[in-house]
């Protein structure tokens, strides 16, 4: 039984930027949601040859913030994340585990040479947070094109999906809960 979800903010976003995300996460997973400011040791995760940060290393740091197995943690960072075999990842989660991490780096329009749009950035972040948390609750990628659990490997695909899981995924979520 999960009793709380902690959003660990290690990014430059302000706490009030996350209000809507907190509300959404609470609505979807039906548990209390708290925001905590945290610091991470980015230096140990930095890979100089790639100029990026190893998300698995950061993920293992995040887990040390956990106090019990009745909670889930999702961290927000600004740095560009990778896992060794891929050029980048938007985020990473422990499948059926405790912790997840999401980066804002490639969710921002500026990264693609477009004008900054904070609202759009927050909408994308909201979906990625729900998506990675979904993995920690044991949800797989989904084929429904609007489902938040659809796999997105390109930022435009994030914009296409909704913030909510489809009915099938919601059912699975309920099952995994009890």
């Amino acid at each position: 039984m999960i009793n709380a979800i902690y959003i660990l903010n290690a990014s430059t976003l302000q706490e009030q930027d996350l209000d809507r995300i907190v509300h959404t996460v609470k609505t979807i997973f039906r548990v209390p949601v708290f925001v905590k400011q945290v610091g991470l040791d980015f230096g140990s995760a930095f890979d100089g040859s790639r100029g990026q940060w190893n998300s698995t290393v950061l993920l293992s740091q995040i887990i040390t913030n956990s106090v019990g197995d009745d909670e889930k943690l999702v961290a927000i960072v600004d740095v560009d994340l990778f896992i060794p075999v891929l050029t980048f990842v938007f985020g990473e989660a422990q499948f059926k585990g405790t912790a997840a991490i999401v980066s804002t780096h490639r969710l921002a329009n500026q990264f693609y040479g477009l004008e900054e749009d904070k609202q759009q950035l927050l909408q994308r972040l909201e979906k990625e947070i729900v998506h990675e948390l979904g993995h920690t609750f044991g949800l797989y990628h989904c084929r429904q094109f609007e489902c938040v659990m659809r796999s997105s490997t390109y930022v435009g695909e994030i914009d296409l999906k909704q913030v909510f899981p489809c009915q099938d995924c919601q059912r699975l979520l309920l099952k995994n809960f009890s």
């Binding site: 060794p84 050029t87 980048f88 490997t153």
Partner: peptide, 8 residues
């Protein structure tokens, strides 16, 4: 390293 979009 492979581009995730390409791999998928």
């Amino acid at each position: 390293p492979v581009d995730p979009d390409h791999l998928s």
